[in-house]
């Protein structure tokens, strides 16, 4: 589903990613872990098409398409979703309107009929229950005045409504209390299916207590230095990132 080959990425002339290779197949859940500043979030943002980053080398194939040539909105319509680390507040646009516009653009792209307001609201309410959001959030402006945890739940809500093929979670667990973490995890697990893939970018292992990854990769200084199964996450929790740096150096 996703093939990253020798990816080099810079921002304002500073190279952040220095040759990433990663293959994600349908049905798999991959966790990308690493210390602060290792380039984890850059990887997530580049995949979503954030305009601030320059890809200097390498390629990314997504469902046999050259992902890097696609506009962000086209990537989304092709099924790529990123849960933002810092979701943007958009005053004056209600959550419901925003999500309906997004869903209908995606449906139109796939040749499906637009959902009318009634059907959409029905779907929305259902999914809001799953992430334990009060229905009043539907009419509130997107993320405006939301707490950190509410913003993250809102990202998961969007993911559940849009049902992407490839979901990328960028530090969705940061700043969450244990209850919110469980809600987020159950939302992600609900999406898990044989024809979808999930990429979890995180600093800590604790989210992985609730979402079991098939593969764990450790990113240090713009390179994947270690890959393994879920056991690797436990080792990291126990020994810290210094251990990876040392074992990578040896």
């Amino acid at each position: 589903m996703l093939e990253i080959r020798h990816l080099h990425v810079s921002i304002e002339g500073n190279e952040i990613l220095k040759g990433i290779d990663l293959t994600v197949r349908k049905g798999e859940v991959h966790a990308i872990m690493g210390p602060n500043g290792s380039g984890k979030s850059t990887l997530a943002r580049v995949l979503a098409g954030h305009p601030s980053y320059q890809v200097t080398q390498g390629e990314v194939r997504y469902q046999d398409k050259d992902l890097l040539t696609l506009a962000p909105e086209v990537r989304a319509r092709e099924g790529v979703f990123q849960a933002f680390q810092y979701p943007v507040e958009i005053p004056g646009v209600s959550n419901a309107y925003f999500l309906k516009a997004a869903l209908n653009e995606q449906r139109a792209f796939r040749g499906q009929e637009e959902l009318d307001a009634v059907d959409f609201l029905e779907t929305l309410k259902q999914k809001m229950k799953l992430v334990e959001m009060d229905s009043s959030f539907a009419n509130r402006p997107v993320n405006e005045g939301f707490s950190g945890g509410e913003k993250k739940r809102n990202e998961i809500l969007q993911m559940l409504v849009l049902e992407p093929k490839l979901a990328i979670l960028d530090e969705t667990d940061s700043g969450l209390d244990i209850d919110a973490l469980k809600v987020v995890a159950s939302g992600v697990n609900r999406l898990r299916s044989p024809d979808r893939a999930i990429l979890i970018v995180t600093h800590y292992q604790r989210l992985l207590n609730y979402i079991t990854p098939d593969f764990v990769h450790v990113l240090v200084d713009g390179r994947i230095v270690l890959s393994g199964d879920k056991q690797l996450a436990f080792q990291l929790e126990e020994k810290g990132y210094e251990w990876v740096r040392e074992s990578a150096a040896s």
Binding site: A48, G49, H50, P51, A71, P72, E73, R75, A76, R77, F81, Q82, F84, P87, V88, I90, F98, L99, A101, A102, L103, E105, Q106, F109, Q158, L162
Partner: peptide, 9 residues
Amino acid sequence: FYLKSRGIG
């Protein structure tokens, strides 16, 4: 970017 990342043109 946020709007576009959800598929909105």
